[in-house]
């Protein structure tokens, strides 16, 4: 019998390309992470796990993991919940939904870099829109509302707003303050991400059969909340899973805002992984440590994907 070797020619190029441009670089990064190789060096030594050891013991890298975790854990839940709420609100609108969709989706379409520059101006400690808005409001309505003076238990002379006004308009420096920077970056992250989630949820909502809501109504689910619990939320399960996975991976990858707004500072409070890789491997030519961070980063993402694939997927598909 004559065997043709044609199949090798069909499969070969694809396999080769996959190895050269996808798998090989990852393996290379893995290999480099066990050396002390720096770009431009003529030679290198194997140093085993030293790079990883550094990562989990040196303060800088602890801060890196801390900043990344904070960013992911804030941006994912907030952008998912806000995205879902926005989608449900838009879904209930009879007209005007398209306008809102466009507005909410704008931050997704625009380049984050340009948006980050706009945010930098807005949040500038002295000249920025936010702080001048706050400063001009001292003693007025803005102080009453934003200082929570309307809550009975807030002492209007001790509110954060009042104190800031007293101290010569000492409002937060937002991106320049260690205590605020990561939260401000998170806020921008949520602002940027929720529009995308909203669009995914809108698609998910339209695929829920209307008869299920009617069945729920006939079964006695009177309130919107009961119908949400009985129909909307379970039926959105697959969408939610996808939205969470995508948002988590994208949050791990945050870079543009950090590069433009904080450069990882102040005192490494916004030193997220992607920025760390960029700084070490590209700016400082410390290729090996950059490779080690990359490996940890990829491990995180793969772990997450597996978790999604094998643990949660079974629960959301019926």
């Amino acid at each position: 019998m004559h065997y043709s070797r044609a199949h090798i020619w069909f499969v070969g190029p694809a396999v080769l390309l996959m190895f050269v441009i996808l798998i090989f670089p990852i393996l290379l990064a893995g290999g480099i992470s066990f050396t002390n190789y720096n770009l431009g060096n003529p030679s290198f030594d194997w140093i085993g796990l030293e790079n990883y050891d550094k990562m989990f013991s040196r303060k800088t890298y602890i801060k890196m993991i801390w900043a990344t975790a904070t960013y992911v854990l804030i941006v994912v839940p907030f952008s998912v919940v806000i995205g879902l709420c926005a989608a449900m609100l838009l879904n209930s609108l009879r007209f005007g939904a398209d306008i809102y969709k466009t507005i909410f989706f704008l931050p997704v379409m625009a380049t984050l870099l340009a948006m980050a520059i706009a945010w930098e101006f807005t949040l500038h400690p002295t000249m920025g829109l936010v702080n001048s808005f706050l400063a001009n409001g001292c003693g007025g309505m803005r102080e009453f509302v934003l200082g929570f003076h309307w809550l009975p238990w807030v002492n209007s002379n001790a509110s954060w707003y009042h104190i800031a006004c007293e101290n010569n308009n000492d409002f937060p420096f937002w991106l320049k303050d260690r205590g605020y920077a990561i939260w401000t970056v998170c806020f921008i992250g949520v602002w940027q991400a929720f529009g995308f989630n909203m669009v995914l949820y809108l698609a998910g909502l339209t695929s829920i059969p209307r008869e299920l809501y009617h069945a729920a109504e006939m079964d006695g689910a009177k309130s919107t909340w009961e119908q949400f619990k009985l129909v909307t939320w379970p039926m959105l399960g697959p969408t939610t899973l996808f939205v969470i996975t995508i948002t988590t991976i994208r949050s791990f990858q945050v870079f543009d805002t950090i590069e433009v707004l904080t450069k990882g500072g102040p005192s490494k409070s916004t030193y997220v992984m992607m920025y760390a890789i960029f700084e070490k491997a590209i700016q400082q030519n410390l290729t090996s440590i950059g490779a080690a961070i990359t490996v940890v980063f990829i491990a995180f993402v793969i772990l997450l994907t597996f978790f999604q694939r094998y643990v949660i997927e079974k629960r959301v598909h019926y």
Partner: peptide
């Protein structure tokens, strides 16, 4: 009176069973 309070039961063409339960 709302549908949920009319005490009627309905069988739908597509059955409309809750697929996750």
């Amino acid at each position: 009176t709302r549908a949920s309070e009319r005490d009627l039961a309905m069988v739908f063409q597509s059955y409309a069973l809750y697929p996750h339960l």
